[in-house]
Each structure stands twice: as C-alpha cells, then as structure tokens.
Write a protein that binds this DNA or RNA. Structure first.
Lengths: 354, 354
DNA sequence: AATTGTAAGCGCTTACAATT
DNA sequence: AATTGTAAGCGCTTACAATT
C-alpha cells in the first residue's frame, strides 16, 4: 500500500523545527540570510518530514514570478506536437527552460472559446514565446497588452524581438540547385500562399498577395532563382497546400505528376511536401533523381530516412528553440537574430558537376 | 506603439463597478449567485476596463485546484517531443485537456538535479499522468506520496489505474505474419531488452531478463510465434537497441544485414527501427519485400510515407492520450483499459495467399 | 426570498524589528 | 555584527451576514 501524506506548509515546518516561517523560507530561497548549519538542519528536517519546499501557487502569488513561459503556437496543440519542425523547436526550447527550472505552457493559437477559464493560465505566465504564423486570434491581441516580455520566432514582424532564418536565401539556393539541371518543366508545392482551404492550383499573381511571411519569403526566393535562370513563369505549375500534412503533400504531388507535361523538378516549401512528392513519384515508378528532381525545405530528420534521401534546406530548429529560450531568460542579449541555413545534399537532387 | 496596461485586480474592478469583490468573483465563477443583468454588466465592464479574470495563482492558492496536469515522461523532454509515438500520445492528451481548459505540464523523468526549484511546480499540479517506462527516479518516488490522482500509460503495474495495449498479442500477430513466409533466417531488432547502453547483439536468455515491461511483452509475443512455427531459436539473430533513434536503427540493421547468412525477415519492436532497416536494405539494393520482409510496431504516420510502405502493428496513440485524459478528468470511469491494436498491411511484408 | 457585501484565510516572501 | 522572528499583504473564494 502507498502511504499518503498530509499537505505540509511552511508553518508546519516552522513549528516542527522550532524556527520562524521566515527562516524556513530563507533556507530555501536565500542561503546567505542564515548560518550554514541552520540551513542544513532545516533542509534535512524538511526532507525527513516530507515537506517538498514552498508551494508554487503561493510563491507565485507573492513574488509575481511563476517560472512558467507561455508558448503561443500558430495551430492546435496536436498539430504542433506532431509537426517535426515545430516539435524540434519545442525540444530545443524545453531543454533550455528545463535547465533553468522553468516550465513551458503550450497555448494553442486557434482559440474559439470565449470562456475565461481558457485564459486563466495566462495570468500565471511570466512572458511569451510566439511561434510562427500571424496570430490574428483574440488571444494574441490580449497578449500585446499584458506588458510581459515577448520573443517571436518565425514571424516577420517589427513589434517584437524575433528569431528567424533567412527564408528567402534558403529558398533561393534550393531552387537554384534544382534549376542547374536545366529542367523542362518546373513545379512548386507551396504552403499557405493563397487563402484557399484545400489543395489547389495557384497562379503566380495570387501568390504574391499572400500575407504569410515565411511562405512569402520562400516564394520570393524561388522567383529570384527562376528569373536568374530565365525560366518562363507561364510554364510554372504551382499547387498551394493549406496545411502541411503528408496527405496534402500526396494530393499535390498527384496533381502535378498527372499533368500532360510532367514536371522534371518539384520544389517544395517543406520536407513534408517533398517526402509526399517522393513517395508518389516512386509509387508511379518515376526514377528519382534521374527523371524527377525534388528539393525540400526544413531538413527534418525524416528527410534522411528515405531512399533516396532528400535534398533540402537544413534549418536548425532545435537551435532556434534554444536561442529563443536563452533570449527570453536574458542569458543572451535580446536582439533580433537571423540563423543560417545550409543546403543538405541528399540524393533527390544532386549537384551539377560543371 | 503598443499600449501596456496596469495589472488589474478584482479589487480594482469592485471599485470601478461599484460592487463588492465577492460579486465580481461570483460573476466569473458562480453565475447563479447574482442576477443575469448584474453579471452581464460586470463581465462587460471588466472587458472594457481590461480585466482578464481572476488571477490563476491566487485562485489556485485559494481553491487548491490549478487545472494543471503533470505528465511524467520516461525520458528527456526533447526525446519525447520528437518521438512520434510519444508525441501522438501527447497530442491526444492535449486535445482532451484543452477542451476542458486544463493545461499540461511536461515533466522530464530523468531528473538529476536536486534543486528544490525543479520540484516547485509539482506542488501546483492537480495530479499526474505517467507515461511509459519504469521511473525509478526520485521524482517518481515523491509522486507516490503526494496523494494526488495518478493514471499510468504504457506501464505494466498494479499500483495505479493504467491505460495499455496488448503488446504481446500485437507482437505475436506481426511475427506470425512474417513467419508465414517460411523465412530461412529471422532477425529481431529489440528495444531496451538488455541493460546495455549501445546497440549490441543479444542472446535469447539475456532478453528474458529485461525489466522493461513493454519490450518484454513484445518479446514474449515474438517467442510465441517463433515456437508456433518451430523456428530454431539458435538461428535467431537479435540486436538490442537502447534508445529508439533512427541512427541506432541503421546501426542495428547494418549489423544484421552484414551477417554471413543474411536475414530474410527482420521483426522490429518499433517503426523507427523498421524504417531504419528498410532504408539500409534499400541502400544495399536488397529487394523489399521480395528478398527481405520487414515488420514494425506502432503504426506511426511516417511508416506509410515510404516506398514500400511498412507492414506494422497499428496502435492508436492519440486515442491512448484521449482515454488517459478523459479518465484523469473523471469523464470516463477510472478502470484499467487495454486498447486494441490492428495489423497495418503495408508493402514490406505482404500477406501470404494460401 | 433574492440579491449583495464582509471578512477570513489559502501559503508564501520580505522589509524591518528584535534578539543574541 | 550576525542571526533570527514579526507581521503585512500578494489576489482570490466562500461561508455567512446584511441588505433590499
């Protein structure tokens, strides 16, 4: 049988150990305020009696600091946790916060409920890390007025300190790599470039109108490369995908590969899109990379688990999380950061030897 | 410029709206305690003045309930977030908790620091969901004495209410599927069956000694199938992997496929292992499934993103998370649950037509 | 009878006072 | 001078009293 304990307070300890509550508190929080011997006696006594240390709610109420960092996500929790890019970011962030004994509170961005309880926890949070997206949600609007520190990641804004990558440069380099093969027919699988809610064909004009900053930057990088190679834009096929899922990737790839003139290059705004395209191509017995080159974006771990492995833009999401965490905690100067990306030379688009 | 607000309290609202603090509190928490008209006037007034509702720390201190559920993980946060099985579970759990306006606090199991601050948050938590592993950690020991509700998932124990799958049955069925092909040489990639800390060959005897319940159950399922097919155990090759990573999977597969007598069946305790084996096999130009059958376990999404797709045991991790959450919240009777699994017929091991 | 207000106390931290 | 204790108050909820 498990033996349960009563909930112990600092008062109980003070009585049991014959000191004041202040001394107990100091023993835990301000070692310089009492003699070493007394501190050890108290710590030992508390351990023996089963007192786990000051109650977090009370401490937080008193000090105004909770040690909890709110992470405002662009999508639902379930999406973010299962998306490799977001989860890598969260892992990096969690590592840093954990080292400093801070905790993470994941806040879904899409909040429809107006119940005040869903906002309750916001009052506990010491500040926010905003991850991705534009966040037109009410929750987001409220945050701005809370006068708490905010770091934004993968958001194109001047309202906060941001941690970003150079999306345009990365996209440009990946597209150039594909275009070096002098393809006949280029296709792009884009993410949330247009406001549609299903996988659909897009025109270049529509794409320019997109407000989603990350996608737009990548799009501009692609355009830059296409222009450099004088690729006729009217020949370009673009399928836009509203949500970065494998299913959508397959659908997009299927649409592209069923065209009368089949693309020999597919440039993708994410590795998930690229992996979907790869799978569909292989199922259709299209030789990759011989008859079809594919480049991705992100450098997720899974991109190197396939055969052939994916050629993609490696971004360092874990590092991104660590940087955001360190900045939030003030361990790193609070200033805008643009992290580098690298080309990850996989097998789906080899380099052209010249 | 963003305009910041002062931190408002229930007192400020009482003064501004000319009612008592109790009435403000009731307006938020006990609608039956005041007239509809007054309640609306208060809610509207608070909104207008920018009061977000009662402070969570104060409320939690007063009521003893925080709405925060501690999720005790077997490994580090970064591992759990990036593991597809764990993250699916977390996604399901998060969904349920979020609907009920509860929050999740992820607690890494491997806690070496003795700083009391790392335990601070434990005092806030309303209860625990323990996910996987044996948890011999100090943190775990402490939890048992806290007299808070606990639900355990993927743990073989009688100390708590548990949510589990039938690991042995699932493993048995997957092994049988592979053995139907009457393989010459069977190999197994196992997880944490032996206490070694690197990828290593294992013997059948050593494997039985494992204390890790999930792995042992799967192992027993494999043995059951092997016996049924009279497969000579002395011919079996087993590589045991301490941590479920792709790198380890590749190493294990490499070891197995470099043997003088190459296996024509590899049975894997996880899809990550199976995907690694598939990749290594394809890189070595071994035809899958013709010359090598592979079966996995888990049914992670990525297992269906490859070509060929993986034959594996589908477990419903998101459902597992939902069930654990619902039970924790008391929306479902608190009783032990064993969730079903299904065979997911992919291409790496087709069914034998007889 | 229906509505609203008073006041205690949840467990802690910390300025400052009191003691050695 | 070094060590320890007193007491107020963080923001809230709720039993109960007071008012209409």
């Amino acid at each position: 049988m498990i033996e349960y304990k009563k909930k112990l307070t600092i008062k109980d300890m003070a009585k049991a150990l014959n000191v004041s509550t202040a001394t107990i508190s100091n023993a835990f929080n301000r070692p310089d305020q009492l003699s070493e011997s007394l501190r050890l006696r108290i710590i030992e006594g508390c351990q023996r009696l089963g007192y786990e240390g000051p109650n977090a709610a009370a401490r937080s109420l008193r000090t105004g600091v909770s040690g909890i960092v709110g992470v405002l996500l662009a999508d639902s929790l379930s999406y973010c946790i299962s998306d490799p890019v977001a989860s890598q970011f969260l892992a990096g962030l969690a590592d840093v916060l954990d080292q400093r004994q801070c905790n993470m509170l994941l806040l879904p961005g899409q909040e429809e409920q107006t119940s005040y309880k869903s906002r309750q926890m916001e009052s506990m949070v010491d500040g926010y890390i905003i991850y991705g997206g534009l966040h037109p949600s009410k929750r987001f609007q409220r945050l701005l007025q809370q006068s708490k520190p905010i770091i934004a990641v993968d958001v194109d804004t001047t309202d906060f300190i941001t941690v970003n990558i150079d999306n345009q440069e990365g996209a440009y380099r990946s597209a150039r790599l594909a275009l070096q093969h002098r393809p006949q027919k280029v296709a792009i699988i884009s993410l949330r470039l247009t406001p549609v809610s299903s996988v659909s064909w897009a025109t270049c004009d529509a794409c320019y109108a997109s407000p989603a900053s990350v996608s737009r930057s990548r799009w501009l990088g692609y355009m830059q490369a296409l222009q450099e190679y004088n690729y006729p834009l009217e020949q370009l096929s673009v399928v836009d995908v509203p949500v970065n899922t494998h299913r959508n990737a397959c659908m997009a790839a299927f649409m592209l590969l069923s065209q009368e003139e089949r693309p020999d290059v597919i440039i993708c705004m994410s590795d998930r899109m690229a992996l979907g395209a790869l799978q569909v191509a292989l199922q259709q017995h299209i030789a990759v990379p011989n008859d079809l080159k594919i480049v991705g974006f992100d450098g997720i771990a899974e991109s190197q688990f396939t055969h052939p492995t994916l050629t993609t833009v490696q971004q360092y999401n874990e590092l991104k999380g660590q940087m955001a965490g360190n900045m939030f905690l003030g361990l790193t100067p609070r200033q805008n950061v643009i992290l580098p990306t690298d080309m990850l030379m996989g097998e789906t688009c080899p380099e052209v030897m010249s």
